[in-house]
Design a protein around this nucleic acid. Sequence first.
DNA 1: TGCCGATGTATCGGTCCGATACATCAAGGC
DNA 2: GCCTTGATGTATCGGACCGATACATCGGCA
Lengths: 214, 214
Amino acid sequence: MAGRKSSGVLELAVLGLLHETPMHGYELRKRLNALLGMFRAFSYGSLYPCLKRLVEQGLIVEDRPEDDDPGGALLLQSRRSKIVYKLTADGKERLQELLTEAGPAAWEDEGFGVRFAFFSHTRADVRLRILEGRRSRLEERLESFRAALARTRERVDSYTLELHNHGLESVEREVRWLNELIGRERAEQAGGRSKRPDERAEEASADDTSDGDR
Amino acid sequence: MAGRKSSGVLELAVLGLLHETPMHGYELRKRLNALLGMFRAFSYGSLYPCLKRLVEQGLIVEDRPEDDDPGGALLLQSRRSKIVYKLTADGKERLQELLTEAGPAAWEDEGFGVRFAFFSHTRADVRLRILEGRRSRLEERLESFRAALARTRERVDSYTLELHNHGLESVEREVRWLNELIGRERAEQAGGRSKRPDERAEEASADDTSDGDR
DNA sequence: TGCCGATGTATCGGTCCGATACATCAAGGC
DNA sequence: GCCTTGATGTATCGGACCGATACATCGGCA
């Protein structure tokens, strides 16, 4: 039971960023939005609750700089200072778990983007599976959408049609991008594995849809 | 005070769809997701609360098919049936208001998509302003993003770079699309203006709604 | 000195969504 | 006739997420 997708996206992003180096919230958010770039942005209203959840789960710890107030008195509430968040061993484990999972959650729009951003920390075989899953998800979406478009061909105004075509082309473009990436991944894996000549007889046909778009 | 964007998107979409013909929830959702196509989809968990809000605001009314239960007894709770929603006069007014507004809300990602889907019901000058607003919003995003990219050029791994470039190209592509649309709009308006005077009168009068104050 | 913008932490009211539940009805197998 | 199946249809809950907002600190800089 969990609203939406059980935090997935933000949790993974925070864990991944914190894996590289401990940080406080403000910087975390900046790096988050820089990392995710054009395709996603989180606000403090999401980040801080998420950090709180992660602390509760023991995946990260907060390092507050010495404000125990030993005398006991002096309850000046104004003692706000930087809080540095750091990954725990459990957190690292959880990150690996999330990064290794290659199920549907990894190729839905949001989940895919975040996972892709951390691909350099992901196992090569998982990368390939995610890329392929994403591609087939997109192709399936394309197909059902094209069918729906054909069904209503003559009953939509020109602006709606324009919007639909633009969306269609965007997705087609992403499929071509994925094709290129998959080809690259495969070539790389085949190359790295070249100790075994008997194994890779086929597969060299990786250059399927590499038309020079762009 | 309003969470997120004060409902904007769904509200407009529902009002717009209901303007064409009354419908019940299920069909409303289907048409909604067909209209918005690849770029957005709403679930019942959003739709029904939204309909409830719209009823409360008096923008739509629900037409339940005669189940008053006059006798008073017979509290069979199972009397569920189709509920057809219909736009009220206030609702039409509100729709016009939303369709005519050409502020920032109209060129943010979500707001823009929905408004574009209803462009055929939007005044030509408003269309142009929204298109141009959207374009400059995108260009501004592009610029700040390119700056950020240049700043961190050598410090990102190849996958992050790949993601950034893909995002960048997607946005550039949308700008080109907007350019084309804007050109088309302008040509159309110029053509209409320099052509027959009666055509122009038709557009000018259209359906009053001359903003005035509200 | 006093103001300003960047840095920094935090919450509130609200939207939206995935999952789920439950009801109706037509088609088709048996 | 009965029963499963799937499309149709209405409805809610818990939770993720967000925009706005509030408040505090700190380094310029006029």
